[in-house]
């Protein structure tokens, strides 16, 4: 019984997932300025936490059932049938963040420094339970004499809880998601 319930919940979560970030933004009128501005302030705050290495604070932005997804294919439909560069349910996301804080995370010895720019925000969908915000980002990562440039599209599902904005899910589509890459350790 419990198993059935869990499976139904999983399927329900899955059906809510967006397909790809390929909607036209032109026909999406900007909603209330305040909303877009609030979303932008939130995304900039998130980016800053990540650049500052405040991963625990970053984790606090996510809801208790949140997921975080970086697909391995352009337009990937699903994180269960195809591998992902990162697909973390809430439990794994906590483990990821705990590891990021470990002094024995050797792939972060020395640590990376990152700098990101977030922009081109549009509200893709808004309903009673939240907003889906689409944005573009560029992130420079410097580590051990090498600099890498990542860029792509992020979709955030933002919800309001206790007067705060929180992330119910986040999907990041890297431009080079199917390239041969050295390890990815710092979340986008």
């Amino acid at each position: 019984m419990a198993k059935k319930k869990k499976r139904a919940a999983r399927l329900a979560t899955r059906s809510r997932r967006p397909i790809a970030a390929r909607r036209s933004t032109a026909r999406q009128p900007i909603r209330q300025t305040l909303d877009l501005n609030a979303c932008e302030q939130f995304l900039l705050h998130e980016a800053r936490l990540l650049d500052d290495g405040k991963f625990e604070d970053w984790l606090k932005l996510f809801t208790p059932e949140a997921w975080y997804w970086v697909p391995s294919e352009p337009g990937q439909a699903d994180p269960f049938e195809t591998v992902s560069l990162i697909y973390d349910d809430r439990r794994l996301l906590e483990t990821r963040v705990r590891r990021l804080l470990s002094p024995r995370m050797y792939s972060q010895e020395p640590r990376s420094r990152t700098s990101r720019i977030v922009g081109n925000l549009t509200i893709e969908e808004s309903g009673k339970d939240g907003y889906t915000v689409r944005s573009k980002f560029m992130m420079i990562e410097y580590r051990r004499e090498q600099q890498r440039l990542f860029g792509g599209t992020a979709l955030h599902r933002l919800v309001q809880s206790g007067g705060r904005i929180m992330i119910a899910w986040k999907r990041v589509d890297l431009v080079n998601c199917d390239a041969p890459l050295d390890g990815i350790t710092i979340p986008f």
């Binding site: 869990k6 999983r10 979560t13 208790p64 059932e65 997921w67 994180p79 269960f80 697909y87 973390d88 349910d89 809430r90 439990r91 794994l92 996301l93 906590e94 483990t95």
Partner: peptide
């Protein structure tokens, strides 16, 4: 903590 099975 919540898991959809992946994390487990």
């Amino acid at each position: 903590v919540h898991s959809d099975g992946t994390g487990e």
